[in-house]
Amino acid sequence: MLKKIKNIIKILFVYSFIMIFANNSIAAESLDLLKNKWSFEGLFGTFDRGSLRRGYQVYNEVCSSCHSIELLSYRNLSENGGPEFSLEDAKNIAASFEIIDGPNSDGEMFARPGRLSDKFIKPYPNVQAAKAANGGAYPPDMSVLVKARQGGANYIYSILLGYEEPPEDFKLEDGVYYNKYMPGHNIKMPNILSDGLLDYADGTEATTQQMAKDIAAFLTWASEPSLEARHKIGFKIILYLIILAGLVYLSMKKLWSRIESK
């Protein structure tokens, strides 16, 4: 018994050793970000539908003029686990955009209204055009942006709220802005959000902080549409495994009792 305890202590020691080091190396990379209590955090996190819908509105009215989100399809807007717009609403959203399709039987490309099956349209046809229109900087595609940045949703939130006057001794180049939370503090995107910038369809007051929260939530969903399904299934599976472990443990003890008695 003592041996078992000693072994467990050794394991815990090594494990905590690893965890401390792991945390340190991750922390070494990240700046102190603004943190928000996200509804999708934690083991039982889910998305707030209202926030996702408002977030979509922010993307559509504010961000989409420069940022593509090309891996998302319009049908995703009505699927489970996301903003869950009604099928009709999602169809109308899709139809409000013009898609270039073709070639037709005359060999020409033509424009048609969007369908659910179409991917979100891009503001620029390619990366080079995006760079040229934005002073040489490419506004990154946002499909997996939340997963592509240390800090995830908190990073997006912090950047949007992190614009301020640079300190005295900080040299800022032309066409570049100072952002407290951007690694290196230089960012080519100007401060976009301001109070009352848009009118939320659900009547919520569109403060800068509210919009930042909503777009961060929307982008988290865009990066991880399976989050809710993942949490739901995961909970059931781990519960199942714990019960199974218990049963198998008892079976093992019963089986081995005949050996120990020999």
Binding site: I233, F235, I237, I238, V248
Partner: peptide, 19 residues
């Protein structure tokens, strides 16, 4: 049965990470 038991514990850790 002992390997199976150890495997299930391992799977709990695996599932915790995956999900």
């Amino acid at each position: 049965v002992k390997d199976l038991y150890a495997l299930i514990i391992f799977l709990i850790i695996f599932a915790g990470i995956v999900f």
